[in-house]
Nucleic acid binder design. Structure first.
Lengths: 257, 257
DNA sequence: AACTAACGGATCAAATAATGATCCATGGAT
DNA sequence: ATCCATGGATCATTATTTGATCCGTTAGTT
Protein backbone atom coordinates (compact mmCIF):
# COMPACT_ATOMS: atom_id res chain seq x y z
CA UNK A 1 0.00 0.00 0.00
CA UNK A 2 1.60 3.24 -1.10
CA UNK A 3 1.60 6.34 1.06
CA UNK A 4 -0.92 7.91 -1.25
CA UNK A 5 -3.24 4.94 -0.94
CA UNK A 6 -2.90 5.02 2.82
CA UNK A 7 -3.86 8.67 2.90
CA UNK A 8 -6.88 8.15 0.70
CA UNK A 9 -7.92 5.08 2.64
CA UNK A 10 -8.35 7.41 5.59
CA UNK A 11 -11.00 9.29 3.64
CA UNK A 12 -13.08 6.14 3.46
CA UNK A 13 -13.52 6.08 7.21
CA UNK A 14 -15.62 9.21 6.93
CA UNK A 15 -19.14 7.94 6.29
CA UNK A 16 -22.70 9.06 6.82
CA UNK A 17 -22.60 7.27 10.17
CA UNK A 18 -19.21 8.54 11.32
CA UNK A 19 -18.60 11.80 9.52
CA UNK A 20 -16.11 13.10 12.07
CA UNK A 21 -13.03 11.56 13.63
CA UNK A 22 -10.56 12.46 16.30
CA UNK A 23 -6.91 11.77 15.58
CA UNK A 24 -6.27 8.92 17.99
CA UNK A 25 -9.60 7.30 17.28
CA UNK A 26 -8.97 7.28 13.54
CA UNK A 27 -5.39 6.07 13.95
CA UNK A 28 -6.61 3.12 15.97
CA UNK A 29 -9.33 2.29 13.49
CA UNK A 30 -7.03 2.54 10.48
CA UNK A 31 -4.25 0.70 12.29
CA UNK A 32 -1.72 3.39 11.44
CA UNK A 33 0.63 5.01 13.88
CA UNK A 34 -0.79 8.15 15.43
CA UNK A 35 2.03 10.27 14.06
CA UNK A 36 1.60 8.78 10.62
CA UNK A 37 -2.12 9.33 10.71
CA UNK A 38 -1.61 12.91 11.66
CA UNK A 39 0.85 13.55 8.88
CA UNK A 40 -1.51 12.04 6.34
CA UNK A 41 -4.42 14.07 7.68
CA UNK A 42 -2.40 17.26 7.53
CA UNK A 43 -1.47 16.53 3.92
CA UNK A 44 -5.10 15.88 3.09
CA UNK A 45 -6.11 19.05 4.88
CA UNK A 46 -3.54 21.11 2.99
CA UNK A 47 -5.10 19.78 -0.18
CA UNK A 48 -8.63 20.61 0.91
CA UNK A 49 -9.94 17.05 1.01
CA UNK A 50 -10.11 17.15 4.79
CA UNK A 51 -10.96 19.98 7.15
CA UNK A 52 -10.27 20.31 10.82
CA UNK A 53 -12.74 21.88 13.15
CA UNK A 54 -10.77 24.68 14.81
CA UNK A 55 -12.44 24.20 18.19
CA UNK A 56 -13.00 20.48 18.59
CA UNK A 57 -9.87 19.60 16.57
CA UNK A 58 -11.82 16.83 14.96
CA UNK A 59 -11.48 16.06 11.27
CA UNK A 60 -14.13 15.89 8.58
CA UNK A 61 -14.30 15.73 4.80
CA UNK A 62 -13.34 18.95 3.05
CA UNK A 63 -14.78 21.32 0.49
CA UNK A 64 -12.32 20.29 -2.20
CA UNK A 65 -14.29 17.11 -2.67
CA UNK A 66 -17.38 19.00 -3.70
CA UNK A 67 -15.44 20.83 -6.36
CA UNK A 68 -13.87 17.68 -7.78
CA UNK A 69 -17.17 15.83 -7.73
CA UNK A 70 -18.73 18.67 -9.68
CA UNK A 71 -16.01 18.59 -12.29
CA UNK A 72 -16.50 14.90 -12.75
CA UNK A 73 -20.24 15.16 -12.88
CA UNK A 74 -20.08 17.94 -15.47
CA UNK A 75 -17.78 15.85 -17.62
CA UNK A 76 -19.53 12.56 -17.08
CA UNK A 77 -22.99 13.23 -15.67
CA UNK A 78 -23.76 9.75 -14.43
CA UNK A 79 -25.82 10.82 -11.44
CA UNK A 80 -27.57 13.60 -13.31
CA UNK A 81 -28.61 11.13 -15.99
CA UNK A 82 -29.26 8.09 -13.85
CA UNK A 83 -31.17 9.47 -10.88
CA UNK A 84 -34.35 10.32 -12.84
CA UNK A 85 -34.26 6.89 -14.46
CA UNK A 86 -33.91 5.20 -11.08
CA UNK A 87 -36.77 7.27 -9.79
CA UNK A 88 -38.98 6.06 -12.62
CA UNK A 89 -38.14 2.44 -11.98
CA UNK A 90 -38.68 2.84 -8.25
CA UNK A 91 -42.04 4.49 -8.88
CA UNK A 92 -43.28 1.88 -11.32
CA UNK A 93 -42.14 -1.12 -9.29
CA UNK A 94 -42.35 0.30 -5.77
CA UNK A 95 -39.21 -1.56 -4.86
CA UNK A 96 -35.80 -0.23 -3.81
CA UNK A 97 -33.59 0.58 -6.80
CA UNK A 98 -29.89 1.35 -6.58
CA UNK A 99 -27.08 2.45 -8.86
CA UNK A 100 -23.47 1.45 -8.48
CA UNK A 101 -20.36 2.25 -10.39
CA UNK A 102 -17.12 0.37 -10.53
CA UNK A 103 -14.37 2.50 -9.09
CA UNK A 104 -11.10 1.54 -7.54
CA UNK A 105 -11.56 -1.88 -6.07
CA UNK A 106 -15.26 -2.49 -6.01
CA UNK A 107 -18.74 -1.50 -6.95
CA UNK A 108 -19.59 1.75 -5.21
CA UNK A 109 -23.24 2.41 -4.48
CA UNK A 110 -23.85 5.93 -5.72
CA UNK A 111 -27.57 6.41 -5.39
CA UNK A 112 -30.59 4.69 -3.91
CA UNK A 113 -34.28 5.21 -4.44
CA UNK A 114 -36.14 3.35 -1.73
CA UNK A 115 -39.45 1.61 -2.00
CA UNK A 116 -42.34 3.17 -0.10
CA UNK A 117 -43.38 -0.22 1.23
CA UNK A 118 -42.93 -0.89 4.92
CA UNK A 119 -41.24 -4.20 4.23
CA UNK A 120 -38.47 -3.06 1.94
CA UNK A 121 -34.77 -3.44 1.35
CA UNK A 122 -32.61 -0.61 2.58
CA UNK A 123 -29.32 0.10 0.86
CA UNK A 124 -27.03 2.89 1.92
CA UNK A 125 -25.10 5.10 -0.40
CA UNK A 126 -21.39 4.59 -0.34
CA UNK A 127 -21.58 0.90 0.39
CA UNK A 128 -19.03 -1.20 -1.48
CA UNK A 129 -20.68 -4.25 -3.01
CA UNK A 130 -18.77 -7.53 -3.33
CA UNK A 131 -18.70 -8.58 -6.98
CA UNK A 132 -19.41 -12.25 -6.47
CA UNK A 133 -22.19 -12.00 -3.92
CA UNK A 134 -24.57 -9.46 -5.40
CA UNK A 135 -26.73 -9.27 -8.51
CA UNK A 136 -25.04 -5.97 -9.33
CA UNK A 137 -21.63 -7.58 -9.12
CA UNK A 138 -22.51 -10.54 -11.31
CA UNK A 139 -24.06 -8.27 -13.91
CA UNK A 140 -20.90 -6.20 -13.87
CA UNK A 141 -18.54 -9.17 -14.10
CA UNK A 142 -20.52 -10.61 -17.00
CA UNK A 143 -19.71 -7.58 -19.08
CA UNK A 144 -16.17 -6.93 -17.90
CA UNK A 145 -12.91 -7.80 -19.62
CA UNK A 146 -12.60 -11.52 -18.88
CA UNK A 147 -9.24 -10.82 -17.29
CA UNK A 148 -10.94 -8.86 -14.55
CA UNK A 149 -13.51 -11.55 -13.92
CA UNK A 150 -10.87 -14.23 -13.83
CA UNK A 151 -8.55 -12.32 -11.52
CA UNK A 152 -11.51 -11.77 -9.27
CA UNK A 153 -12.33 -15.46 -9.22
CA UNK A 154 -8.88 -16.21 -7.95
CA UNK A 155 -9.34 -13.92 -4.98
CA UNK A 156 -11.00 -15.09 -1.80
CA UNK A 157 -14.71 -15.49 -2.29
CA UNK A 158 -16.18 -14.56 1.06
CA UNK A 159 -19.39 -16.31 2.05
CA UNK A 160 -21.76 -13.74 3.46
CA UNK A 161 -24.71 -16.09 3.78
CA UNK A 162 -25.39 -19.77 3.23
CA UNK A 163 -26.43 -18.86 -0.30
CA UNK A 164 -23.32 -16.96 -1.37
CA UNK A 165 -21.76 -18.46 -4.48
CA UNK A 166 -18.29 -19.46 -3.37
CA UNK A 167 -17.54 -22.34 -5.72
CA UNK A 168 -15.82 -20.86 -8.80
CA UNK A 169 -17.75 -23.22 -11.09
CA UNK A 170 -21.14 -22.03 -9.87
CA UNK A 171 -20.04 -18.44 -10.07
CA UNK A 172 -18.94 -19.05 -13.65
CA UNK A 173 -22.40 -20.36 -14.43
CA UNK A 174 -24.02 -17.27 -12.96
CA UNK A 175 -21.71 -14.99 -14.93
CA UNK A 176 -22.31 -16.86 -18.15
CA UNK A 177 -26.07 -16.78 -17.62
CA UNK A 178 -25.92 -13.05 -17.02
CA UNK A 179 -23.80 -12.53 -20.12
CA UNK A 180 -26.33 -14.49 -22.16
CA UNK A 181 -29.53 -12.91 -20.87
CA UNK A 182 -28.32 -9.41 -20.16
CA UNK A 183 -29.31 -9.41 -16.50
CA UNK A 184 -28.46 -11.22 -13.29
CA UNK A 185 -30.25 -12.47 -10.22
CA UNK A 186 -28.98 -12.30 -6.69
CA UNK A 187 -30.75 -14.65 -4.33
CA UNK A 188 -29.70 -13.95 -0.76
CA UNK A 189 -26.05 -14.07 -1.68
CA UNK A 190 -25.12 -11.02 0.34
CA UNK A 191 -27.89 -10.68 2.86
CA UNK A 192 -30.49 -13.21 3.91
CA UNK A 193 -33.98 -12.64 2.61
CA UNK A 194 -32.97 -10.23 -0.14
CA UNK A 195 -33.66 -10.94 -3.78
CA UNK A 196 -32.41 -8.67 -6.53
CA UNK A 197 -32.23 -8.30 -10.24
CA UNK A 198 -29.52 -6.26 -11.89
CA UNK A 199 -28.41 -5.15 -15.33
CA UNK A 200 -25.08 -3.69 -16.39
CA UNK A 201 -24.63 -0.10 -17.50
CA UNK A 202 -22.29 -0.26 -20.47
CA UNK A 203 -19.56 2.20 -21.35
CA UNK A 204 -18.71 3.24 -24.89
CA UNK A 205 -16.25 0.39 -25.17
CA UNK A 206 -19.04 -2.10 -24.54
CA UNK A 207 -17.77 -3.10 -21.12
CA UNK A 208 -19.76 -2.47 -17.97
CA UNK A 209 -19.05 0.65 -15.95
CA UNK A 210 -21.56 -0.19 -13.24
CA UNK A 211 -24.97 -1.64 -12.62
CA UNK A 212 -28.51 -0.82 -11.69
CA UNK A 213 -30.44 -3.19 -9.48
CA UNK A 214 -33.89 -3.72 -8.01
CA UNK A 215 -33.83 -5.23 -4.53
CA UNK A 216 -36.82 -6.66 -2.70
CA UNK A 217 -37.64 -9.08 0.08
CA UNK A 218 -37.36 -12.65 -1.13
CA UNK A 219 -41.06 -13.09 -0.32
CA UNK A 220 -42.05 -10.76 -3.15
CA UNK A 221 -40.08 -12.72 -5.74
CA UNK A 222 -42.99 -14.10 -7.77
CA UNK A 223 -42.96 -15.17 -11.39
CA UNK A 224 -45.39 -12.49 -12.46
CA UNK A 225 -43.54 -9.50 -11.02
CA UNK A 226 -40.05 -10.80 -11.69
CA UNK A 227 -40.55 -10.72 -15.45
CA UNK A 228 -41.66 -7.08 -15.19
CA UNK A 229 -38.69 -6.25 -13.02
CA UNK A 230 -36.28 -7.78 -15.49
CA UNK A 231 -37.69 -5.65 -18.27
CA UNK A 232 -37.63 -2.54 -16.09
CA UNK A 233 -34.04 -2.92 -14.96
CA UNK A 234 -32.72 -3.81 -18.42
CA UNK A 235 -34.57 -0.92 -19.99
CA UNK A 236 -33.29 1.47 -17.35
CA UNK A 237 -29.69 0.36 -17.75
CA UNK A 238 -29.90 0.79 -21.50
CA UNK A 239 -31.57 4.18 -21.16
CA UNK A 240 -28.74 5.38 -18.95
CA UNK A 241 -26.04 4.25 -21.39
CA UNK A 242 -27.88 5.79 -24.30
CA UNK A 243 -28.37 9.13 -22.58
CA UNK A 244 -24.76 9.19 -21.43
CA UNK A 245 -23.20 8.45 -24.77
CA UNK A 246 -25.90 9.27 -27.29
CA UNK A 247 -25.93 5.71 -28.52
CA UNK A 248 -26.35 2.19 -27.26
CA UNK A 249 -22.91 0.57 -26.85
CA UNK A 250 -22.45 -2.91 -28.32
CA UNK A 251 -22.16 -5.27 -25.35
CA UNK A 252 -18.94 -7.15 -24.84
CA UNK A 253 -19.58 -10.30 -22.92
CA UNK A 254 -16.99 -11.90 -20.78
CA UNK A 255 -17.57 -15.58 -20.91
CA UNK A 256 -15.56 -17.31 -18.26
CA UNK A 257 -13.86 -20.41 -19.56
CA UNK B 1 5.29 19.03 -0.74
CA UNK B 2 4.61 15.54 0.53
CA UNK B 3 3.92 12.64 -1.80
CA UNK B 4 0.29 12.73 -0.79
CA UNK B 5 0.04 16.41 -1.62
CA UNK B 6 1.67 15.78 -4.97
CA UNK B 7 -0.83 13.08 -5.78
CA UNK B 8 -3.77 15.23 -4.85
CA UNK B 9 -2.36 18.19 -6.72
CA UNK B 10 -2.71 16.07 -9.83
CA UNK B 11 -6.44 15.92 -9.23
CA UNK B 12 -6.61 19.68 -9.52
CA UNK B 13 -5.52 19.58 -13.14
CA UNK B 14 -8.80 17.92 -13.99
CA UNK B 15 -11.19 20.79 -14.60
CA UNK B 16 -14.34 21.50 -16.58
CA UNK B 17 -12.11 22.67 -19.43
CA UNK B 18 -9.63 19.80 -19.33
CA UNK B 19 -11.41 16.86 -17.77
CA UNK B 20 -9.13 14.24 -19.31
CA UNK B 21 -5.37 13.89 -19.42
CA UNK B 22 -2.86 11.63 -21.02
CA UNK B 23 0.07 10.54 -18.89
CA UNK B 24 2.87 12.45 -20.60
CA UNK B 25 0.78 15.55 -21.03
CA UNK B 26 -0.12 15.64 -17.36
CA UNK B 27 3.44 14.90 -16.25
CA UNK B 28 4.68 17.84 -18.28
CA UNK B 29 2.02 20.15 -16.93
CA UNK B 30 2.56 19.12 -13.32
CA UNK B 31 6.34 19.17 -13.74
CA UNK B 32 6.69 15.69 -12.29
CA UNK B 33 8.65 12.90 -13.83
CA UNK B 34 6.59 10.71 -16.10
CA UNK B 35 7.26 7.62 -13.98
CA UNK B 36 6.35 9.50 -10.82
CA UNK B 37 3.18 10.83 -12.36
CA UNK B 38 2.19 7.37 -13.40
CA UNK B 39 2.77 5.90 -9.97
CA UNK B 40 0.70 8.64 -8.40
CA UNK B 41 -2.08 8.17 -10.94
CA UNK B 42 -2.10 4.42 -10.35
CA UNK B 43 -2.37 4.98 -6.61
CA UNK B 44 -5.24 7.40 -7.16
CA UNK B 45 -6.90 4.96 -9.52
CA UNK B 46 -6.60 2.12 -7.03
CA UNK B 47 -8.38 4.36 -4.57
CA UNK B 48 -11.16 5.26 -6.97
CA UNK B 49 -10.37 8.96 -7.20
CA UNK B 50 -9.15 8.57 -10.76
CA UNK B 51 -10.29 6.28 -13.53
CA UNK B 52 -8.53 5.28 -16.67
CA UNK B 53 -10.35 4.84 -19.93
CA UNK B 54 -9.52 1.30 -20.99
CA UNK B 55 -9.31 2.18 -24.68
CA UNK B 56 -7.81 5.65 -24.87
CA UNK B 57 -5.66 5.10 -21.74
CA UNK B 58 -6.48 8.61 -20.72
CA UNK B 59 -7.24 9.49 -17.11
CA UNK B 60 -10.27 11.21 -15.62
CA UNK B 61 -11.74 11.83 -12.20
CA UNK B 62 -13.23 8.75 -10.56
CA UNK B 63 -16.47 7.67 -8.99
CA UNK B 64 -15.06 7.65 -5.48
CA UNK B 65 -15.25 11.43 -5.48
CA UNK B 66 -19.00 11.37 -5.88
CA UNK B 67 -19.37 9.12 -2.90
CA UNK B 68 -17.15 11.24 -0.67
CA UNK B 69 -18.82 14.45 -1.77
CA UNK B 70 -22.16 12.93 -0.85
CA UNK B 71 -20.97 11.96 2.58
CA UNK B 72 -19.75 15.44 3.21
CA UNK B 73 -22.87 17.05 1.89
CA UNK B 74 -25.06 14.81 4.04
CA UNK B 75 -23.04 15.75 7.11
CA UNK B 76 -22.60 19.40 6.29
CA UNK B 77 -25.14 20.36 3.63
CA UNK B 78 -23.59 23.62 2.52
CA UNK B 79 -24.61 23.37 -1.11
CA UNK B 80 -28.03 22.00 -0.33
CA UNK B 81 -28.67 24.92 1.98
CA UNK B 82 -26.91 27.65 0.07
CA UNK B 83 -27.98 27.06 -3.51
CA UNK B 84 -31.64 28.05 -3.00
CA UNK B 85 -30.52 31.16 -1.14
CA UNK B 86 -28.16 32.10 -3.95
CA UNK B 87 -30.95 31.53 -6.42
CA UNK B 88 -33.17 33.96 -4.53
CA UNK B 89 -30.51 36.63 -4.45
CA UNK B 90 -29.72 36.16 -8.13
CA UNK B 91 -33.41 36.39 -8.98
CA UNK B 92 -34.06 39.52 -6.93
CA UNK B 93 -30.95 41.38 -8.09
CA UNK B 94 -30.49 39.86 -11.54
CA UNK B 95 -26.75 39.86 -11.02
CA UNK B 96 -24.31 36.98 -10.83
CA UNK B 97 -24.06 35.52 -7.32
CA UNK B 98 -21.42 33.04 -6.20
CA UNK B 99 -20.59 30.97 -3.16
CA UNK B 100 -17.10 30.07 -2.05
CA UNK B 101 -15.74 28.07 0.80
CA UNK B 102 -12.31 28.14 2.34
CA UNK B 103 -10.64 24.82 1.88
CA UNK B 104 -7.00 23.93 1.83
CA UNK B 105 -5.16 26.98 0.64
CA UNK B 106 -7.77 29.28 -0.80
CA UNK B 107 -11.36 30.20 -1.38
CA UNK B 108 -12.94 27.59 -3.61
CA UNK B 109 -15.87 28.70 -5.73
CA UNK B 110 -18.52 26.07 -5.16
CA UNK B 111 -21.58 27.40 -6.92
CA UNK B 112 -22.57 30.19 -9.26
CA UNK B 113 -25.95 31.57 -10.20
CA UNK B 114 -25.51 33.80 -13.21
CA UNK B 115 -27.41 36.94 -14.04
CA UNK B 116 -29.73 36.76 -17.03
CA UNK B 117 -28.43 40.09 -18.31
CA UNK B 118 -26.36 40.05 -21.48
CA UNK B 119 -23.71 42.21 -19.88
CA UNK B 120 -22.92 40.11 -16.84
CA UNK B 121 -20.01 38.74 -14.89
CA UNK B 122 -19.18 35.10 -15.47
CA UNK B 123 -17.57 33.07 -12.72
CA UNK B 124 -16.70 29.43 -13.11
CA UNK B 125 -17.12 26.82 -10.44
CA UNK B 126 -13.90 25.47 -9.05
CA UNK B 127 -12.00 28.72 -9.45
CA UNK B 128 -9.67 29.51 -6.57
CA UNK B 129 -10.07 33.12 -5.47
CA UNK B 130 -7.11 35.10 -4.13
CA UNK B 131 -7.93 36.35 -0.66
CA UNK B 132 -6.52 39.85 -1.02
CA UNK B 133 -7.90 40.71 -4.45
CA UNK B 134 -11.57 39.79 -4.23
CA UNK B 135 -14.52 40.98 -2.21
CA UNK B 136 -15.09 37.39 -1.13
CA UNK B 137 -11.53 37.12 0.11
CA UNK B 138 -11.63 40.34 2.09
CA UNK B 139 -14.92 39.39 3.68
CA UNK B 140 -13.42 36.07 4.63
CA UNK B 141 -10.20 37.54 6.01
CA UNK B 142 -12.15 40.07 8.07
CA UNK B 143 -13.76 37.24 10.01
CA UNK B 144 -10.83 34.86 10.21
CA UNK B 145 -8.45 34.20 13.08
CA UNK B 146 -6.15 37.21 12.89
CA UNK B 147 -3.24 34.83 12.62
CA UNK B 148 -4.51 33.66 9.26
CA UNK B 149 -5.01 37.18 7.98
CA UNK B 150 -1.59 38.23 9.15
CA UNK B 151 0.20 35.23 7.72
CA UNK B 152 -1.55 35.94 4.46
CA UNK B 153 -0.43 39.53 4.48
CA UNK B 154 3.16 38.41 4.68
CA UNK B 155 2.80 36.34 1.52
CA UNK B 156 3.25 37.83 -1.92
CA UNK B 157 0.32 40.01 -2.81
CA UNK B 158 -0.04 39.52 -6.52
CA UNK B 159 -1.35 42.50 -8.48
CA UNK B 160 -3.96 41.24 -10.92
CA UNK B 161 -5.05 44.69 -12.11
CA UNK B 162 -4.02 48.27 -11.50
CA UNK B 163 -6.60 48.33 -8.73
CA UNK B 164 -5.45 45.31 -6.75
CA UNK B 165 -4.65 46.18 -3.15
CA UNK B 166 -1.02 45.28 -2.79
CA UNK B 167 0.07 47.68 -0.06
CA UNK B 168 -0.43 45.90 3.29
CA UNK B 169 -1.67 49.11 4.89
CA UNK B 170 -4.49 49.56 2.39
CA UNK B 171 -5.41 45.91 2.63
CA UNK B 172 -5.58 46.31 6.41
CA UNK B 173 -8.00 49.19 5.95
CA UNK B 174 -10.20 47.11 3.70
CA UNK B 175 -10.22 44.22 6.14
CA UNK B 176 -11.00 46.49 9.07
CA UNK B 177 -13.82 48.16 7.16
CA UNK B 178 -15.27 44.77 6.29
CA UNK B 179 -15.01 43.64 9.92
CA UNK B 180 -16.81 46.75 11.01
CA UNK B 181 -19.64 46.78 8.47
CA UNK B 182 -20.08 43.07 7.93
CA UNK B 183 -19.52 43.18 4.20
CA UNK B 184 -16.76 44.01 1.75
CA UNK B 185 -16.41 45.63 -1.64
CA UNK B 186 -14.16 44.50 -4.44
CA UNK B 187 -13.55 47.16 -7.05
CA UNK B 188 -11.73 45.68 -10.01
CA UNK B 189 -9.12 44.11 -7.77
CA UNK B 190 -9.10 40.80 -9.56
CA UNK B 191 -10.52 41.59 -12.96
CA UNK B 192 -10.95 44.92 -14.67
CA UNK B 193 -14.47 46.23 -14.83
CA UNK B 194 -15.86 43.93 -12.16
CA UNK B 195 -17.45 45.26 -9.00
CA UNK B 196 -18.57 42.99 -6.24
CA UNK B 197 -20.01 42.96 -2.78
CA UNK B 198 -19.46 40.05 -0.43
CA UNK B 199 -20.41 38.90 3.05
CA UNK B 200 -18.88 36.14 5.13
CA UNK B 201 -20.67 32.92 5.97
CA UNK B 202 -19.87 32.23 9.60
CA UNK B 203 -19.21 28.89 11.21
CA UNK B 204 -20.37 27.95 14.70
CA UNK B 205 -17.14 29.26 16.16
CA UNK B 206 -17.90 32.72 14.76
CA UNK B 207 -15.14 32.60 12.19
CA UNK B 208 -15.83 32.70 8.47
CA UNK B 209 -16.01 29.42 6.59
CA UNK B 210 -16.60 31.07 3.22
CA UNK B 211 -18.35 33.92 1.50
CA UNK B 212 -21.19 34.80 -0.77
CA UNK B 213 -20.76 37.58 -3.31
CA UNK B 214 -22.69 39.53 -5.90
CA UNK B 215 -20.62 40.45 -8.94
CA UNK B 216 -21.60 42.94 -11.62
CA UNK B 217 -20.05 45.16 -14.26
CA UNK B 218 -18.57 48.28 -12.67
CA UNK B 219 -20.98 50.33 -14.78
CA UNK B 220 -23.94 49.09 -12.78
CA UNK B 221 -22.42 50.11 -9.46
CA UNK B 222 -24.80 52.90 -8.54
CA UNK B 223 -25.63 54.20 -5.09
CA UNK B 224 -29.27 53.17 -5.26
CA UNK B 225 -28.68 49.54 -6.21
CA UNK B 226 -25.54 49.06 -4.15
CA UNK B 227 -27.39 49.60 -0.90
CA UNK B 228 -29.92 46.96 -1.89
CA UNK B 229 -27.15 44.57 -2.87
CA UNK B 230 -25.43 45.01 0.47
CA UNK B 231 -28.63 44.12 2.29
CA UNK B 232 -29.24 41.16 0.00
CA UNK B 233 -25.81 39.66 0.36
CA UNK B 234 -25.63 40.16 4.12
CA UNK B 235 -29.07 38.69 4.59
CA UNK B 236 -28.23 35.72 2.40
CA UNK B 237 -24.99 34.99 4.25
CA UNK B 238 -26.78 35.11 7.58
CA UNK B 239 -29.60 32.94 6.31
CA UNK B 240 -27.12 30.29 5.23
CA UNK B 241 -25.36 30.23 8.60
CA UNK B 242 -28.63 30.08 10.43
CA UNK B 243 -30.00 27.24 8.35
CA UNK B 244 -26.75 25.33 8.65
CA UNK B 245 -26.42 25.57 12.39
CA UNK B 246 -29.89 26.41 13.61
CA UNK B 247 -28.64 29.66 15.10
CA UNK B 248 -26.80 32.80 14.12
CA UNK B 249 -23.14 32.51 15.17
CA UNK B 250 -21.62 35.45 17.04
CA UNK B 251 -19.16 37.06 14.65
CA UNK B 252 -15.51 37.07 15.58
CA UNK B 253 -13.78 39.95 13.88
CA UNK B 254 -10.16 39.87 13.02
CA UNK B 255 -8.90 43.38 13.30
CA UNK B 256 -5.49 43.66 11.74
CA UNK B 257 -3.10 45.65 13.86
C1' DA C 1 6.89 0.16 -46.57
C1' DA C 2 10.34 2.08 -43.88
C1' DC C 3 11.23 5.67 -40.65
C1' DT C 4 10.37 8.69 -36.92
C1' DA C 5 8.42 10.55 -32.86
C1' DA C 6 5.47 10.45 -29.13
C1' DC C 7 2.99 7.67 -26.30
C1' DG C 8 2.03 4.50 -22.05
C1' DG C 9 4.28 1.59 -19.32
C1' DA C 10 8.28 -1.11 -16.67
C1' DT C 11 12.79 -1.31 -14.18
C1' DC C 12 16.08 -0.50 -10.42
C1' DA C 13 20.13 1.86 -7.99
C1' DA C 14 20.32 6.16 -5.64
C1' DA C 15 18.18 9.65 -3.00
C1' DT C 16 14.71 11.16 -0.28
C1' DA C 17 10.69 11.11 2.34
C1' DA C 18 7.84 8.31 5.49
C1' DT C 19 7.85 5.94 9.81
C1' DG C 20 6.98 5.24 14.77
C1' DA C 21 9.01 5.20 19.54
C1' DT C 22 8.99 8.77 22.58
C1' DC C 23 8.10 13.06 24.55
C1' DC C 24 5.15 17.15 25.85
C1' DA C 25 1.11 20.06 27.04
C1' DT C 26 -3.77 20.25 27.70
C1' DG C 27 -8.33 19.03 29.32
C1' DG C 28 -11.85 15.98 31.24
C1' DA C 29 -13.10 12.52 34.37
C1' DT C 30 -12.80 10.25 38.77
C1' DA D 1 -5.48 16.41 43.24
C1' DT D 2 -4.54 12.69 40.33
C1' DC D 3 -5.04 10.08 36.35
C1' DC D 4 -5.56 9.05 31.70
C1' DA D 5 -6.53 10.00 26.94
C1' DT D 6 -6.13 13.37 23.75
C1' DG D 7 -3.71 16.29 19.91
C1' DG D 8 0.54 17.51 18.58
C1' DA D 9 5.98 17.67 17.94
C1' DT D 10 10.62 15.46 17.37
C1' DC D 11 14.19 12.81 14.99
C1' DA D 12 17.19 8.64 14.12
C1' DT D 13 16.03 4.65 11.50
C1' DT D 14 14.00 2.59 7.67
C1' DA D 15 11.43 1.90 3.69
C1' DT D 16 9.54 4.20 -0.13
C1' DT D 17 9.76 7.34 -3.71
C1' DT D 18 12.35 9.03 -7.45
C1' DG D 19 13.91 9.55 -12.28
C1' DA D 20 17.29 8.10 -15.93
C1' DT D 21 16.70 4.67 -19.05
C1' DC D 22 14.66 1.09 -21.45
C1' DC D 23 10.82 -1.34 -24.09
C1' DG D 24 6.89 -2.23 -27.11
C1' DT D 25 2.94 0.24 -29.68
C1' DT D 26 0.74 3.45 -32.26
C1' DA D 27 0.16 7.31 -35.48
C1' DG D 28 1.92 10.39 -38.66
C1' DT D 29 5.44 11.42 -42.38
C1' DT D 30 8.46 10.60 -46.03
Amino acid sequence: MSTVEKAISLLNFFTEDTPEWGLSELARQARFDKATTRRLLVALANSGLIEQHTVTRRYQLGAGLLRLARVRESHFPLLQVAVPVLRDVAASTDETVHLSEFGGRGLVTLHVEESTKANRVSVSTGQILPLHATASGIAFLAFSPSQLARSYLRKSLTAFTRHTLVQPARLDDAINAAAEHGYSRGEQGYEDGVFSIAAPILGLDGYAIGSIAIAMPQSRNTKATTERHIQAVRGAARAISTRLFGEQPTPRHARVA
